[in-house]
Write a protein that binds this DNA or RNA. Structure first.
Lengths: 114, 114
DNA sequence: CCTAAAGTAAACCATATGGTAAAGCAAACG
DNA sequence: CGTTTGCTTTACCATATGGTTTACTTTAGG
């Protein structure tokens, strides 16, 4: 399950930047070219290209070359890995083994004995 | 809404590291001290402390000093900011304005006219 | 054909990140 | 009281990140 780990890494890393989240939210409304995205976010073409590639590697954006333009569109199911992990973690917490109180009690007990 | 942005930044940044996700998942089962967490993840105390602080700043972990121990526990609602954002983005995509096909058509049309 | 537009590549830069080692400090234990 | 134990601080290191500028390529339009 190393693959999973890497996928989550790239997903969360992609989301961990304000600009990238803004771009993704923008692309949720519809496709756009690099220049368009760059203008909308006050950034160099080169800079925007880097962001797009990071989103692409995370599978959150697909791009198509159309003439001299590179059209970017959001990939729907892309956020699922991330939100699945969050949901699973939350569920695990709900069925958690130890509460803080129990943990502290245990500490006390083991402290008295050894 | 700058605050929101910063909260999302710190949340996703906290999640964008394999070790930190492992720690959070571990804490979903119950509380633990720094030494414990450090041992479980083959890392220096100092290293683990850094991770815990990052999780704490993101609001995903609370810690209590108990004697000379610092007990860490997961904060339940913590992942909500992140998963809410993901859900909202997905929803936005579902009602999206432009599809790829429409976008390409528009390009063609505006291309022919000027 | 010539030029402008869109993208790409490469080099560079400042700062952030994930980690370590070493030294210090406070609470327990014997 | 002295010694562990558990944490904390500090300094340090290598690499990654987010951004720029500059130069090059490819397509489109006049």
């Amino acid at each position: 399950m190393v693959k999973q780990t890497q996928a989550l890494d790239s997903s969360f890393k992609a989301l961990a930047d304000t600009t990238r989240r803004a771009v993704l939210l923008r692309l949720a409304d519809g496709p756009g070219g690099i220049t368009e995205l760059a203008d909308e976010h006050q950034m160099t073409l080169a800079g925007m290209l880097k962001h797009v590639r990071i989103l692409e590697e995370a599978g959150m954006v697909r791009t198509v070359k159309h003439g001299r333009r590179r059209i970017c569109e959001m990939n729907a199911g892309s956020c699922d890995h991330a939100s699945d992990w969050l949901a699973a973690t939350r569920k695990r917490w709900e069925n958690r083994f130890d509460s803080m109180e129990r943990y502290l009690e245990e500490l006390e007990r083991s402290g008295r004995r050894g």
